[in-house]
């Protein structure tokens, strides 16, 4: 092949519309393959190189920064409608590398790798000296708050027994002394008010996930639990995720599971 003078790739401006299209396709890919944690939004395009690809098309080698939104990964709300978590809520940033193929005007992700990290405590303190910080998810107060909230939710729920899927976020609030938690649940084949041993309950084949937010407040004579769960529409039984070496993103969160439900799905209202 004739030697192509120069670096072999073309430079593009990071704010070029074509670059932005590639970056948005990449973030859509992440959000539709995220299995735990929260959806992310594009925040800044750091670098881009465009390599020619034989026989046709181009590959965008792109580095982007994202910010966590307040929508859980399996929430059917379109990511574009999800608010970016504010600095004072202890924001979380994603750093992602992608290879995005552009062919016949279409963008498709060939490779994705993302890592996420919370903002520093100092930065949160700068914007809000009294705001609570993210707490370690294995903190005993967090585990207790989730357990109490899930028990309260199931106790008032006359349908399926819901079991914990993951604790997504937690904060220890200094005043009033309380623990704030956000966690994901899934319906099982047990009836909530008949469960004797939750270990005998199994997730439904058609997954029905929910997302709960709860505050456990310490009182003089005990503790108060306030919990609100939003149950998402059932998910069709999904084929096993690609595992034949296709580069699925290094999840920003711990583990993998089914892709998020179709965005058109109508959400079941919040259940308190």
């Amino acid at each position: 092949a004739p030697h192509i003078p120069g670096p072999g790739y073309r430079e593009l401006n990071c704010d070029d519309p074509e670059t932005e299209q590639a970056a948005l396709a990449a973030v859509d890919y992440i959000n539709s393959n995220l299995l735990r944690g929260y959806k992310h939004a594009l925040n800044q395009i750091d670098k881009v190189k465009v390599w020619p690809r034989r026989p046709t098309g181009e590959v965008f080698e792109i580095e982007i920064d994202t910010l966590e939104t307040t929508c859980y990964a399996l929430d059917p709300t379109p990511a574009a409608n999800c608010s970016v978590r504010k600095l004072e809520q202890h924001a979380v940033e994603g750093d992602c590398d992608f290879h995005v193929l552009k062919q016949d005007g279409q963008f498709s992700v060939l490779f994705a790798k993302c890592d996420s990290s919370p903002d520093s405590a100092e930065d949160v303190r700068k914007v809000c000296p009294d705001c609570p910080l993210l707490a370690p998810l294995n903190d005993s107060r967090v585990a207790h708050a989730v357990e109490a909230a899930l028990a309260a939710f199931n106790a008032r729920n006359n349908g399926s027994y819901y079991q914990l899927v993951e604790v997504a976020r937690a904060q220890i609030v200094p005043l009033p002394v309380s623990t704030y938690v956000e966690f994901a649940v899934a319906a099982t084949d047990c009836v909530a008010n008949e469960v004797t041993d939750p270990a005998n309950c199994n997730l439904l084949a058609e997954k029905q996930y929910g997302f709960c937010k709860s505050t456990l407040t310490q009182k003089v004579a005990g503790e108060d639990v306030a919990v609100t769960c939003t149950v998402f529409p059932t998910q069709p039984v999904l084929p096993q995720l690609l595992t034949d070496g296709t580069n699925v993103p290094t999840p920003m969160v711990a583990s993998a599971g089914p892709a998020s439900p179709p965005a058109a799905a109508v959400m079941v209202g919040p259940m308190v």
Partner: peptide, 27 residues
Amino acid sequence: GVGQPGVAVPAGPVVRPCPGRIRHFKI
């Protein structure tokens, strides 16, 4: 500035292509 004849004058500020604009905030 007025360039001396025969001296190359920079064609104005070079637009730094990357990193691009920040859409929300930087942490």
